[in-house]
Design a protein around this nucleic acid. Sequence first.
RNA 1: CGGGGUGUGGCGCAGUUGGUAGCGCGCGACGUUUGGGACGUCGAUGCCGCAGGUUCGAAUCCUGUCACUCCGACCA
Length: 479
Amino acid sequence: MANDKKMVEQITAMDTDFAQWYTDVVKKAELVDYSGVKGCMIIRPYGYAIWENIQHDLDTRFKKFGVENMYMPLFIPESLLQKEKDHVEGFAPECAIVTIGGQNKLAERLMVRPTSETLFCEHYKNIIHSYRDLPKLYNQWCNVVRWEKTTRPFLRTSEFLWQEGHTMHENEEQAVEETLQMLKCYEDFYRETLAIPAVTGRKTDKEKFAGARETYTIEPMMHNGVALQGGTSHYFGDGFTKAFDITYTDRENQVRYPHQTSWGVSTRMIGAIIMTHGDDNGLILPPKVAPIQVAIIPVAQHKEGVLEKAGELKALLSEKFRVKLDDSDNSTGWKYSQYEMKGVPLRLEIGPRDIENNSCVLVSRVSRQKTFVSLDNLVEEVEKALVSVHEELLARAEKNLAEKTSVAASHEEFLDIAENRPGFIKAMWCGDSACEDQLKDETGGVKSRCIPFVEEHISDKCVCCGKPAKHMVVWGRQY
RNA sequence: CGGGGUGUGGCGCAGUUGGUAGCGCGCGACGUUUGGGACGUCGAUGCCGCAGGUUCGAAUCCUGUCACUCCGACCA
């Protein structure tokens, strides 16, 4: 196309520099702006609208499981955070701390929450007394702060938005079931709403959440083969409930410790969307979370009847879709590029010729194919086109995931793939974290992503030390 | 936290041996245009990241600091 050159010059090509491409898209699509505080991003209306759509979809899913929303304080007294030993060790190094209130030094330092397990535990201690009080299925949508060393919009920020679910159950079985159910919920959400396929499974001990007995994870693969930890669901057993002395009386009149879970996903998912679906023309948004699903571009809008018709179509489509009619006096070409950059899944062009023919043009953001459709069944056609955008995005991402997943049977093969083929590596593992450390050192950053729920048998021996293998692990570099 | 790079109108950049800041895009008005980033005329916009220092004089030299970015180590 004649204008391709001009159009891409604002966004660095993916193949040239993927990291720069990401930064360009984030800024040019008006998702975020930088603030004066390191690692804190200004989420602009267009970016925040994506988050609102994500929230609405997920929240609906949570509520179907009986989860209730509530809100916990921003501050955690230092002594409270320290109650569970592993948990403190994991989070203390990256906490922001408030030491002064008003003009006075505080008697006890307050940690800005990095996560709220401890707050929930303290509260649960007060409200859980009987098996009749269980399960407790609470969730909060909030911000948390983790003082990260290096930061990138959405992927790693000092402050980020997320949801954290915290549940208490009578026993291990019910808690484990909850943990797995919520991971499945994330997996479904990723696939059905974000059109992102992923590997799911259990974290190795080395990669577990601080204080968790088991951590389950969803690991989508970005376009360049790098993994993103897309969400986690933790089973805590009774570790915290013992540390916080939370007890209930069970059906047999015995005092017991409840079993606990927590699970969360964050604004990082927006980063996953960008890096999974985007292309050299910018962002591509899955229709279900796109703030604008259809951009109506009037052609020759100064001509009689064009804007009126465009307005009619907007009113018609707005009953079912999120629609924007751009009647600004920018040129049509500018508008095309603008909405492509912002990832709007479907463009509708309407001009004098179309009006004569009682039709309009639909253009898919993924394929950029133009389709002429009759105005008589426009709603159905738009619906179909949006569904097809979702399906194409999912298929494309699945293809990328499959193509960039390799199998390594030997140590040499593992190192060779790690160096030469971006993506996931499936390989056997003995269960010793020393082998994880060694592989990470040797490859300069390839770590275990997870032990998938469905393991394949590749060989009998650990790919690193050669001792008998316990599991198949999916390995990869991560953001 | 280690190593590189960058901070100058909204954005992208230039600014020589220190002499009081410029270009392109964008922005505003008017006119012509309008099916893939239009064009003309006129116009507006600067605490040169911030704080010290050197100097008659600093965007420029020195010190410190903050932020951004890339590459590592740590994490959603």
